[in-house]
Design a protein around this nucleic acid. Structure first.
Lengths: 90, 90
DNA sequence: ACCATACGCAACCAACTAGTTGCATGTCAA
DNA sequence: TTGACATGCAACTAGTTGGTTGCGTATGGT
């Protein structure tokens, strides 16, 4: 969609780590992702900070989310990545 | 090389415009590029600001530069782009 | 009904960033 | 040599960003 939002989203290492996790397990709740990031990658960060990151990723179209009960399900979407680099690669 | 520098470099729309120009005409001086950006794309920005952007792009490995007389020759390099997106695309 | 839990919202803060202006330097042509 | 010109360097500034803390809300199990 909007190139700018995609690149801005990718500029942060924490968000890229989140994409790493989400590209591995395509569907997980925000809670799962948060726990996974803190435990497996030992990053010291609050839940709210990660939620803000998810908002950024969602605005860029890299993640879509859906409220399911009290959980927020997250799904990774690689389409923006493909379309965005085609400008310079051939 | 360093993923972080590449993504940070790509986060700015002006720098992406510079890459557009450089990917079209692979070799041009900083002066040419500056003139081209200001005239053809009508961006209002100083020479010094563009020079700083080039520094960022060069640190990311997306552009290499070489002093040739009083000019600074710029060359576009797409290799970092390829290696950097392979993590999520298959 | 109750309460733990998964999440949303908002205010605040320090650090970074993109931009500017001003001045210095080196190169080339006349 | 002199001067125009392409570039480099440094200080400063406004705006953005990633993070925090504190509190509110809705959902689901017991």
């Amino acid at each position: 969609m909007q190139r700018d939002l995609v690149f801005k989203a990718l500029a942060d290492p924490t968000r890229r780590l989140m994409l790493d996790e989400l590209s591995e397990r395509k569907e997980q709740t925000l809670y799962e992702l948060t726990a996974r990031l803190i435990m497996r990658h030992e990053i010291a960060i609050s839940r709210q900070a990660l939620a803000k990151h998810i908002d950024v990723l969602e605005q860029a179209g890299l993640v879509s989310s859906e409220k399911r009960g009290k959980y927020r399900m997250l799904v990774f979407n690689d389409e923006p990545l493909r379309s965005v680099v085609n400008r310079w690669l051939k």
